[in-house]
Write a protein that binds this DNA or RNA. Sequence first.
DNA 1: TTTTGTTCTGCAATCGATTGTTGTAATTTA
DNA 2: TAAATTACAACAATCGATTGCAGAACAAAA
Lengths: 344, 344
Amino acid sequence: MKPKKRVTIYDIAKKLNLTASSVSRALNNSSHVNEITKQLIVKTAAEMNYKPNTLASNLRKGKSQTIGVVVPRINQNFFANVIAGIEDATYQRGYNLIICQSNELHDKEVQCINTLINQHVDCIVISVAAEGNDYTHLQNVIDHNIQLIQFDRVADNLETLKVVNDNEQASMEAVAHMIAQGYKRIALLEGPQNLDVFRQRKAGYTRALQEAGLPVSEELIIANAWTKEAGAVAVRGLLNMPNPPDAIFASRDDFSALGVLEVATDMGIKVPDELGICGYSNEAFTEITSPSITTIDQHSVYIGKTISNLYFHEMDNKSKDTASAPKIISIKPKLITRSSTTRI
Amino acid sequence: MKPKKRVTIYDIAKKLNLTASSVSRALNNSSHVNEITKQLIVKTAAEMNYKPNTLASNLRKGKSQTIGVVVPRINQNFFANVIAGIEDATYQRGYNLIICQSNELHDKEVQCINTLINQHVDCIVISVAAEGNDYTHLQNVIDHNIQLIQFDRVADNLETLKVVNDNEQASMEAVAHMIAQGYKRIALLEGPQNLDVFRQRKAGYTRALQEAGLPVSEELIIANAWTKEAGAVAVRGLLNMPNPPDAIFASRDDFSALGVLEVATDMGIKVPDELGICGYSNEAFTEITSPSITTIDQHSVYIGKTISNLYFHEMDNKSKDTASAPKIISIKPKLITRSSTTRI
DNA sequence: TTTTGTTCTGCAATCGATTGTTGTAATTTA
DNA sequence: TAAATTACAACAATCGATTGCAGAACAAAA
């Protein structure tokens, strides 16, 4: 079976004894087309099941109405939510999304960026991979006159639009909340410190302790407890100390908080009475554990929407040549206090 | 500042006193280009930071090296994982992914499909929205000669490639496992029955009971318990019955299983001794609750890879004109037995 | 009747890459 | 040395839509 060719504006034109230009103008609702012929064209286009060739249109117009997104992993809750937010807002403006995942690898990230440049996307949204600190590929994006927006994990030395979370502030509030609940020896499970976001969370933890006049003891700060097994061992070690902590801030994510909860339950330690637990990122399950887990919501979908709006705002300004949008937008995460830290 | 124009093959050609065709051939590593000039072209292309215009290339070649994906929600674990799987496999073949979410709305699904057709994607991968049962838009995809692959939630009456889970078999095994563990009155929290997948799970539940000679009692089958609150009420009602169930199959997902676990713990009912619990979809947290939750893994990333392979296989066959790939691939989910159902 | 203006449609170039055909010079063979 | 073959590169058409400019048809004004 021969692949029947798709209907083009030429086919419509031929059928109506017109030219492609008129058809194009009619379908784009442009001026200078007789109202009657316009109706006729629109009608027959629908009848012939005409679908415009966006490739051709984009080539001619020099833009693709497409936004490229590069994230470390599509199937990580936070990123999936951000993407959902971006999609929602951009779709309404008729934009498409091309999604790539870097798998945390620098080389793949570079490849993704190149593909997106080749695709003539109008904008690239990226949260950089954990690996690598060479950002010439991002500079390349800028050089090709493509709008670049970084979010969450950003390359600081690059002057681009940025949407970030105020990790330090949120962490500080979380720890301050625990202190207010009467916890005095608060341990920290830190995230990978080569990433900015986790350093900020640690800084917030430290600052909260200092402002409350509490000591920061290294023995209460646990690194590299990222697998389920290593986490369990580390937490067990903490809780078996002669002078154990009375609260744990699992700053990496809620999964480690859940792990802590399990170890505590297993050891017969009462949460929140004997041990307070706070996680990070407000995974869905934190609400239905018992006790429910205090955590921090990053407004991930909202971050996505903010990114879209930032882009469209920048576009509108560029065309109007007025003042540009703010370069960095900081989203304040929200502390969600639940049973696991509530003892007053 | 003027937007500096991008380098094209004409720019390269002019610089080297050649024509665009030679440049094109050289960059595509095609035959009939002198090795020395080829080297020269490749070298200067790199120097000039040339990036091919995929739009133009695709327009000319009549295909876009792009696959469109439509899912109800990008940020649902299952779908995010499937997408990750698709992305991984297609990326290696130089394909791009355009992602759309229907938000479970039929109208938006239709719009997404139209956008993808306009974009001249080579293939559309879809899991249909819960809403609506009119599939003319999918027929339209086929009419436009675009490969259509359905997965998970499929429109049965449409003859397309399909990748599905054997929900019935998996559910049957899960319930059979519980029966083998000595549970005798097994309740079912069913999912929305307008969706095939949840009807299949119910069928598996029923079949397992029947094959074991156990009665299927309507009072043990709970519908519409989909919010956290409604679920808690329903489960509490179940467990307060004069003759309560000794196990619950939360066939919708692991979140409802976690909800069951919480209610049970709250009521002082011992899991798994007095109550067995089985969820569905193997969310990450099921492994770290206590007790850990028995669940069913859908191999979601693998489903994504299977979809990609199916597409490429079909393409290869189409060009070779040999036998076509099987129309329906059924992936067997894997029962993961954990503490919540293990009492022997 | 001539001029000016308006409204619509056609013509043709353009976006950037690809590719079948043609032309030319170099190389090989008879 | 002439003829045949090969290797390379130029030419030009093409993909489908857009758009500045030109021109035709008609109406209104002078």
